[in-house]
Design a protein around this nucleic acid. Structure first.
Length: 254
DNA sequence: CACCAGGTGGAAC
DNA sequence: GTTCCACATGGT
């Protein structure tokens, strides 16, 4: 079967929070200083740009990964088929870290709302310096709630050099997790999301309430690392999407 | 009007 | 070590 990236699934599966679908069928969004408008009918704006090829991870063998993951179990095979076309983006590390700090105990709609308000201040995603300048009170006004001091702490640590994202990108995952977790409001879940989505560490397997339920219901409580190894992060994203959009659709979660 | 949300820090056992 | 709970706010 022919494999192709699915923009809707990739951009609306909860890994990135500032892409939106226009009435014309075009997805518009940005990363760093670059912005893009692209539709599923014509992927050439992505494939023709080195930057966006990398952002959308176009040179990874997703077809091969799906073959591998499908061997794990019948339910995983169904999840792969259902979620086919989702790719793990190469997002900006700071934006990913910041976004997933905001994501805690929050819903995807409001995460997007908060991040859109953050970006409206500066046009681009705010830098650590800009976050520090906005201040805790300013962040509170943007509706971050109790996460305001967490985001502020993250920005301060990055700005002071206490957290060096460049170094983290070179650390092994356990050390990187440990370092990220020195930021207030960053625990296992946020750290692993930052590493998977911001640093492209495909072996990370973020465990949220959905994934806890999935692993218990579909995999007898076994761990993502054990089942999926170096592709755990991709498996996690497929399962998250499959769980929300199919497996538990119309049923009560708890 | 309750209850929930891609969790975490901190206090209490 | 584990369990409980508050946390701010928009959506349903």
């Amino acid at each position: 079967m022919k494999y192709e990236i699915n923009l809707a699934r990739t951009l609306d599966c909860g890994q990135a929070f500032r892409w939106s679908l226009g009435d014309d069928g075009f997805w518009t969004g940005a990363s760093g200083v670059s912005s893009l408008s692209v539709s599923q009918n014509d992927l050439s704006p992505i494939t023709g740009s080195a930057f966006w090829r990398h952002y959308f991870d176009m040179d990874f063998d997703y077809s091969g990964a799906i073959s591998e993951l499908s061997k794990v179990s019948p339910v995983m095979s169904r999840a792969c088929a259902f979620s086919s076309g989702i790719q793990i983006l190469n997002q900006d590390p700071w934006e990913a870290l910041c976004s997933f700090v905001i994501s805690q105990n929050n819903n995807i709609k409001r995460i997007k709302l908060i991040i859109s308000r953050l970006c409206r201040l500066t046009t681009l995603f705010p830098t650590p310096q800009q976050i520090v300048d906005i201040g805790v009170a300013g962040l509170r006004e943007l509706g971050l709630g109790f996460r305001d001091s967490y985001v502020h702490d993250a920005a301060g640590k990055v700005l002071s050099g206490e957290i060096c994202l460049e170094e983290i990108s070179r650390m092994d995952v356990p050390r990187a997790m440990e370092k990220l977790k020195t930021i207030k409001g960053v625990g296992d879940k946020v750290a692993s999301c930052a590493l998977l989505y911001g640093f492209h560490r495909l072996e990370c397997f973020p465990m949220d309430v959905w994934m806890k339920r999935v692993m218990s219901d579909m995999f007898d409580g076994r761990s993502g690392q054990e089942l999926f190894g170096p592709l755990a992060g991709l498996a996690q994203q497929y399962l998250f999407f499959y769980a929300r959009e199919c497996y538990y659709k119309g049923r009560e979660l708890q």
